[in-house]
């Protein structure tokens, strides 16, 4: 049912242009990886603190607020590079299990981070506790799944 949409994606101007270019896909892919680094840093600085390690001398709310613009920037960079990569090989993605794992866990991770973790971290009374550890571990597990599934798109035929 969704296949016609994926075929349409692949035939978009952007999708075709990237496929026709020798350099476009690798270069966009490399920038996607730079985004991954930034995303990892912006997430981990808060997640490690939630786990009770890392910058334990600072409050969770402070770190979360400071990391947020970089987190938003990283997600923006990942999406802005991820969409063209997808467009260039949409039909391959349609038949790729890893792609579906990534594309379904990604919204969960985004909602968890921006709707839940963000709100929990903002309350000044949240300090290292079983609850904060569960939030931190959940965040790392979710994003690791998204990233690992993303990497596996390229490795599974």
């Amino acid at each position: 049912m969704l296949l016609p949409f994926f075929e349409w994606c692949e035939n978009t101007v952007v999708g075709s242009a990237i496929r026709d270019s020798l350099w476009a896909f690798p270069v966009i892919e490399a920038v996607h990886l730079v985004g991954l680094c930034l995303l990892g840093g912006a997430l981990l600085i808060v997640d490690l603190r939630l786990l009770g390690v890392g910058l334990t001398g600072r409050s969770i709310s402070e770190l979360s607020a400071q990391a947020r613009p970089w987190l938003v920037g990283a997600v923006t960079l990942m999406v802005a590079t991820g969409i063209p990569l997808f467009l260039s090989e949409a039909v391959k993605c349609y038949y790729n299990t890893s792609f579906w794992v990534k594309i379904t866990t990604l919204p969960v991770a985004l909602v968890f981070t921006f709707a839940l973790r963000d709100r929990w971290a903002r309350s000044p009374e949240l300090d290292t506790s079983l609850r904060s550890r569960l939030i931190g571990a959940g965040s790392i597990a979710l994003w690791l799944t998204v990233a690992a599934a993303g990497r596996w798109i390229g490795l599974s035929a």
Binding site: L33, L36, C37, L38, L39, G40, G41, A42, L43, L44, I45, L55, G57, R58, E62, L63, Q66, A67, P69, W70, W143, A147
Partner: peptide, 24 residues
Amino acid sequence: LGLFVGTTIMMDLRLLGVTFRQVP
């Protein structure tokens, strides 16, 4: 990369005085 370069970049941004400016 997310762990190694990610935490490195956060430290670099602090050294640049761009963010986490209150964190020693």
